[in-house]
Simulated assay, not measured.
Amino acid sequence: MVTYTHFGKQPDVLKHLVLCEVLQIEKPQIYVETNSACAIYTMTHTPEQEYGIYHFLNEANKDATLKNSLYYQLESECMANGNYLGSPALAMKVLNNDVKGCLFFDLEKGALDNIELFARTQAVTPPIRTLNCDSIDGVLKLLSSLPKSTFLHIDPYEIDKTNNNGHTYLDVLIGATKLGMKCLLWYGFMTINDKQVLNKYMSEKFNKVGIKDYTCAELIMNAIKKDTVVCNPGILGSGILATNLSQKSNSIIKDYSKKLVGIYKDALYQEFDGSLYHDTISKKQNIRIKRHL
């Protein structure tokens, strides 16, 4: 039984909007996803989905770039039938047969079954392989056998939590980055304190291993507080961290995240301020904190 309920929420919009555009630009030979979840979901019009994908589809009509995005086009068609495409489906549709293979990891067998069923229903789909295991160790073991042209989509929420062998998802990104592979990592947080901890963790790890060239874009709900959670639209803040991507992809990440700020400027999540602001890993976090005390 699949228990995932995160689909179609606002953080998915950032993650999947960027993923579709970047995959089309980078055209990898191998696609690897660490936390795949399902390929397709049935929408239920929850408040979180209304604030997420429904708000995006309604407001993106006002912005030509967003309306012409692959994400908008793919989800508009699927949502007309009451369904939402998860990242495995989006990746398969964007890459088609232009990729040699897709590897999907997940701990829930039901999610992997969903991916396999979706792939069988498509007229054109790349060769896929599903792996029902811990993806931190699974990917780390595979890295040395993968070509440099591999693209890793790392999507765990918690990037600093160690597994049984003491490794984290940031370790996966670092290992793949040092091998020259293209990486897109998504992470989330619920308070400003959480954000600070994650930003410090990422900065220190990158400094330790000598990774200086990366792109980071965070979207944060203005309702976020320093150390308390006043509402839960899914996640109050999330970020995209990218390495080894082309300049065009890096620009897309920055530009599209800022465009989402624009279409959410008057948004509400229930009775809460649903507007967003854009941030990144920086030394200016204390300035941000003052507005949320």
Results as ranks from 00 to 15, higher is better:
2 V>P: 15
3 T>C: 12
4 Y>S: 11
4 Y>D: 10
15 K>G: 10
16 H>D: 05
22 V>I: 12
28 P>T: 08
30 I>Q: 02
30 I>W: 03
33 E>L: 03
36 S>N: 02
39 A>K: 02
47 P>W: 00
48 E>G: 02
48 E>K: 06
50 E>W: 01
53 I>M: 03
55 H>G: 04
65 T>W: 05
67 K>L: 07
67 K>E: 06
67 K>Q: 10
69 S>R: 04
70 L>F: 04
74 L>M: 08
74 L>N: 03
75 E>G: 07
76 S>R: 11
80 A>K: 11
85 L>G: 01
86 G>E: 01
94 V>W: 00
94 V>T: 04
95 L>K: 02
96 N>Y: 11
100 K>E: 12
102 C>Y: 00
102 C>R: 00
105 F>Y: 15
109 K>E: 15
110 G>A: 10
110 G>W: 03
113 D>Q: 13
118 F>V: 11
118 F>H: 05
119 A>R: 08
120 R>V: 11
122 Q>F: 05
123 A>F: 07
124 V>N: 13
124 V>M: 10
125 T>R: 07
127 P>S: 05
128 I>M: 12
130 T>A: 08
132 N>W: 06
137 D>M: 09
137 D>H: 07
138 G>F: 07
140 L>F: 05
147 P>I: 11
147 P>H: 08
148 K>E: 12
152 L>D: 01
155 D>C: 05
156 P>L: 01
160 D>L: 11
160 D>H: 14
161 K>S: 10
167 H>Y: 15
167 H>F: 15
167 H>W: 13
167 H>P: 09
168 T>P: 08
168 T>S: 13
176 A>C: 15
179 L>Q: 14
181 M>G: 03
183 C>Y: 00
184 L>V: 10
184 L>H: 02
185 L>N: 02
186 W>N: 06
189 F>N: 06
204 E>Y: 11
209 V>P: 03
211 I>F: 03
216 C>E: 06
217 A>K: 01
219 L>M: 10
223 A>S: 15
223 A>Q: 08
225 K>I: 10
227 D>H: 10
228 T>E: 15
230 V>G: 08
230 V>E: 13
233 P>H: 04
236 L>S: 08
237 G>A: 09
241 L>K: 07
247 Q>I: 14
251 S>I: 09
255 D>A: 15
255 D>Q: 15
257 S>A: 12
257 S>K: 00
258 K>L: 13
258 K>A: 14
262 G>M: 14
264 Y>P: 01
265 K>H: 13
267 A>I: 01
275 S>D: 06
278 H>C: 13
278 H>P: 12
279 D>I: 03
281 I>F: 13
283 K>L: 09
284 K>P: 08
284 K>F: 14
287 I>V: 10
